[in-house]
Every structure is written in structure tokens, then in C-alpha cells.
Design a protein around this nucleic acid. Structure first.
Lengths: 139, 139
DNA sequence: TCCTACACTCTCCTTTTGGTGCGTATGGCA
DNA sequence: TGCCATACGCACCAAAAGGAGAGTGTAGGA
């Protein structure tokens, strides 16, 4: 974790001080973040990390509460971004497998901390919401 | 990072094996994740982590490209979830300060890994997108 | 012979997201 | 006298997200 912290510090120092990090790169990073910081992407990522290779409907089952449309879209975008590999077996009925790439596994590892945070602090978030409601909602 | 990995493994083992983790908790964690895995939340979190206490318009400037409406909404939700503290100085013209709470700083640290991932691999994501376009778009 | 399974795609619809612009209160500055 | 700055709230609108349900093509089972 300390390594990550110092890496982030370096990143900030760089983006603040040195011109070489162009706005183009900045915008690309933003774009990637915006894409990847998506509810369904995170959930699919976790399902595949946890279970390895899965079929379309299996991913849907593991994630839970996702419509076919969103599942298709999410998986396509993840394939496009190089996070998953989509393998089509040309049989009938159709059979398609999804597996994380190395890039996807790295991202999953990066998201790890957020999952742990949510598991650790969700009770505090609930408490904060309750306090907020009583403070603002009841005023 | 290994510590996080094992924590995540423990989390998975728990959610798969033990009944005590109720669907209520599961849904709460999902809700928190969905809330927090938001583009603007991440960006505001980073701005405040990097610069400490900021005023409303300063946060807007640091984040860049956010409308007042979204900034208000994001900051309010973060306040509600206990991620930021909002301090109103009753003067005219109005003066409001925003600071991360400990919870917010923890979350920021957790997101660190994702920022580093994006900085490290955005070029590979670009390459993957290009390859995908040539593969599918050109077919 | 008809039904089911799979991995979608397509259309229609509702909900959410997000932008723009206007109003506001008032102390200080020109 | 009159305008500016701050941190919004509100109303209106466009665009995107997302859900529900129907259609598809065919091998194999009842």
C-alpha cells in the first residue's frame, strides 16, 4: 500500500510540475477511469476474477440483477478495452466464454482496495446517512 | 497488496460459504460501491486528497469540466455518506469549505490503485481499442 | 412435431444524468 | 449609485442509461 501511495504521489508531482504529461494523456486517463469506474464493469470484473472463465448467462447469474442488454454492453466494452477475452465456439446452441486478460486481472487487483473499503466501512456509511437524514431531513 | 488480496479472498470465502453475510449486507455493499464508483465522486475525492480543504468553486476548478449542479450534487452525496465535511461560514458573500473525513481519506487511498492502474495501462487500453476497431469495425 | 436452450439483437419505453440559465442576498468597491 | 462575487436552488430541456419484451436460428430432447 505504501508503494501505491508513493506511486500516486509521484503521479501527482508529475502532473503538477512537468509539462510532458500532456492534456491528451490526462484526458485519456480520465476517459479510462470514467469507463472503468462503472458499477456493472466492477461487478463483472469481480465475477470473472472469482470464477475464472464463465459463459454469458453464468456471468449474468454471478453478477445478479443485470439485464441482458447491459450485460452485453458491459462485456463488449470490456472486450474492446482489452479487459476480457471473448471466445466463440461455433456450435449450436451458441457457446461463448469470457475470461479476464492480464490487464483485466490487474484492474481487478486494483479495485480490490475499494471492495475491502466497502466491506469494512459500509456500516459507517449507513450511520453517516442516518445522521445526515436526522440532521437535514428532520430540520 | 498481498494483504489486500488475502482480505479479498477471505471476503469471497465468507460470502460464498457462510450464511451470516446476509443479502441485506450484500445489497448495502453493492449500493455503497455503486455510489462511490462514480466518475465525479472519484475526481472530487482526488482533488480534496491532493489539496486538502477547498471551497466550492475551488473544487470545481480542480476537477475541471463539472457543472455547478453536478458539483453540488456530488458534494452533497459525499457529505451524506460521511466522506466530506461541509463547513459553512455565515458571511456574505457565502463561504463554504469542504474537507475529507477519515473515511474519505481511506476511500481515496483505496482508489489509489485504480489511478495507478489507469496511469500505467492507459496506453494498452488505447492499443486494445485500436485493435478492436480494426478487427470488428473494419470487418 | 413442438419446445427448449443459448447468446444475443432490436424496438419501445421510463428513469436518470447532466447542462444552461436565472434568481438571491448583501458587504465592499468604484 | 450600482455592480461584483459566492454558493448555491430551481426550472427547463436534451441525451444517455437502462429495463422489458419480442425475435432469431437450429440441434437435440420429449
Amino acid at each position: 500500500m505504501q508503494a501505491i501511495r508513493s506511486a500516486m504521489a509521484a503521479m501527482h508531482a508529475r502532473s503538477n510540475a512537468l509539462p510532458p504529461v500532456s492534456p491528451a494523456v490526462e484526458s485519456l486517463v480520465r476517459q479510462v477511469i470514467a469507463q472503468v469506474a462503472d458499477k456493472w464493469t466492477m461487478l463483472v470484473l469481480e465475477a470473472l476474477e472469482e470464477h475464472g472463465t464463465l459463459r454469458f448467462t453464468e456471468v449474468g447469474r454471478m453478477v445478479g440483477g443485470i439485464s441482458q442488454k447491459m450485460l452485453t454492453k458491459t462485456l463488449r466494452e470490456m472486450e474492446r478495452d482489452g479487459l476480457v477475452i471473448r471466445t466463440v465456439h461455433p456450435v449450436i446452441p451458441p457457446h461463448v466464454d469470457y475470461t479476464l486478460t492480464e490487464l483485466g486481472r490487474e484492474l481487478s487487483a486494483a479495485f480490490c482496495g475499494v471492495w475491502v473499503w466497502a466491506e469494512t466501512y459500509y456500516a459507517e456509511v449507513s450511520a453517516a446517512r442516518k445522521a445526515f437524514r436526522e440532521r437535514e431531513g428532520g430540520a
